[in-house]
Design a protein around this nucleic acid. Structure first.
Lengths: 136, 136
DNA sequence: ATTGAAACACCTCAATT
DNA sequence: AATTGAGGTGTTTCAAT
């Protein structure tokens, strides 16, 4: 289904998703067409889900990043699952195990924006916020 | 520094980083050269940090994803900061505020792999693990 | 900062191995 | 599955505005 060459392709695309099929082929000694077939196969199988970019949010004026754990109040879970991705500040949302049921990664301009977001989230459950100091 | 057109370009590239400059130009009515100059400017400024892909780890046999909060033992922080990214299971690592100082996102084949990872991390601090049930 | 044009590279598809 | 070759498209560079 996926062989060692596919894993190599994934490795190079993870590092730079804008590499051309020709460039990828040169790196692993394969023709552009063969590379194309393999990449398309992985797209069709849903192994490659998306080609994206990483942005430096600080440089765009979003100086605050945080993880928020939510312990949703009884009966509110279905509702919050429907609306959580409509918050533009929420970049990632996961359901998790434990006494807290939702894990968010949020990006914000400043503490005031965080406060406003927490005010909104408080309606649905108890919040536990961890500010991100740096990437490692 | 960055104007509304740059933000538009970022928006399209976030959705599909393999779009050609010509395609991007068609979407926002700009010449390929102009698009290229703007994108390169954002790369040079470090606003665009990386072109990457999103992988469906489950389809590659990595069925387990988790967040791990670490409360590092006194004197161990410097050491773990140096080695944490050498763990192949660790996909993201952040320093955070709170009584726990490090937040990890890890991807694993199964519970046994998680157990082995936790055994290694226990040396440096107390661990608190949240399994990821699903993305929202 | 943007446009336009020419040379070059790349992508795609079909035929072939 | 991979390669090859051909036609169409995209990219790059540079001069001009």
């Amino acid at each position: 289904m996926v062989d060692a060459i596919d894993i190599e392709l994934i490795r190079f695309l993870k590092d730079n998703s804008r590499l051309s099929f020709a460039d990828l082929g040169r790196k692993i000694n394969l023709s552009p067409s063969a590379v194309r077939d393999r990449v398309q196969k992985m797209e069709d199988l849903g192994i490659i889900q998306k080609y994206g970019i990483t942005i430096d949010n600080k440089k765009l004026g979003y100086d605050l990043e945080a993880f928020i754990l939510l312990k949703i109040f009884p009966g509110q879970l279905k509702h919050i699952l429907e609306i959580i991705k409509d918050f533009p500040e929420v970049k990632e949302a996961h359901r998790i195990t434990g006494s807290q049921n939702i894990h968010l990664k949020v990006v914000l301009k400043n503490q005031i924006a965080l406060q406003k977001l927490l005010d909104q989230l408080m309606v649905f459950g108890d919040t536990n916020t961890f500010l991100i100091l740096s990437e490692i």
